[in-house]
Design a protein around this nucleic acid. Structure first.
Lengths: 151, 151
DNA sequence: TATTATTATATCGTGCACGATATAAATCAC
DNA sequence: GTGATTTATATCGTGCACGATATAATAATA
């Protein structure tokens, strides 16, 4: 062992948490794509619908908070989902700045497929349920720390 | 406890591994942004440079394999890094279809900042080193399973 | 109550990300 | 060796993702 040996000089891309997230996120996007293409949905549109299945009749701002995106991202997604007939947008009467989003029958019907898709994806991860739950909370905690330390 | 109780009917967006990755990946992107903006780099450009610091003089195809992206993504990134003066693109002489990418002095110099940036980001995750290494390998393994089961 | 500031959403510009297609070079088949 | 196929990269179209800015409505303040 030479005395000048350098340990972990600059880590390769594979050792970086940023690349792990970057590449895994893209892989997940692609995995969903095969399930969503037949439904005519994109991955961000599907995630938006998932939030609405959980809580319908919310404002654009609430969706942004929940999905941690900007209005400049959410407004176009919601407009496309409206054009697809999966939701309606209605200005608030009390506060006319707000836009309330409501699922249509078509948008609610899509939830029927969701459970099957989720099960397929989880199977494809090759991670056991308990371990996956732990992974979700660890990744979420890390995300929240990053957000907090970046304010 | 009613007999018809439904356990984990449809999971909320926060329980889904897809949303954990989606939101954490965006949070990571934003965290890097504050460090990269002064350098005039975007996050994907920085990741591409990281791959080049590890192995220089490679083809576009090798970069695509390494970073798990398509040429339609990588070609424009490499071209922008070329315009910024951080690398050069040279057609292969033996096989003229190939394009070899070489870092310039400017591109190599940027590595000086990398270690500091990585340390800041890791600190911001609030995850201990050993646990972070484990997280990286778990996320990477999951990514590889998703890719394998999606062929 | 005017004026100012804040808030909710929308728009615009840039840069990914990727499927589909194009192009040209290399390889294969005969 | 000529035609068919494969391979490496590039181009194009669509949809995010986000910062900066715009717009209009509400709230705060003088």
């Amino acid at each position: 062992m030479p005395p000048s040996e350098q340990i972990a000089e600059t880590p390769g891309v594979d050792q970086l948490i940023c690349f792990a997230l970057y590449s895994a996120s893209h892989a997940m996007n692609r995995a969903y794509k095969s399930h969503l293409a037949p439904l005519g949905l994109t991955y961000p549109q599907y995630i938006t619908l998932t939030a609405l299945w959980e809580a319908d009749g919310v404002t654009i701002g609430t969706l942004c908070t929940r999905l941690m995106t900007e209005t400049s991202t959410m407004t176009p997604i919601v407009k496309r989902l409206e054009q697809l007939g999966h939701l309606t947008r209605k200005r608030g009467t009390e506060d006319e700045r707000q836009v309330f989003v409501h699922l249509t029958k078509s948008g609610r019907k899509l939830q029927d497929e969701a459970d099957t898709i989720t099960r397929c994806i989880i199977a494809d991860t090759n991670v056991a349920h308990a371990k996956l739950d732990k992974l979700v909370s660890e990744i979420s905690a890390m995300r929240d720390s990053l957000i907090q330390n970046n304010q």
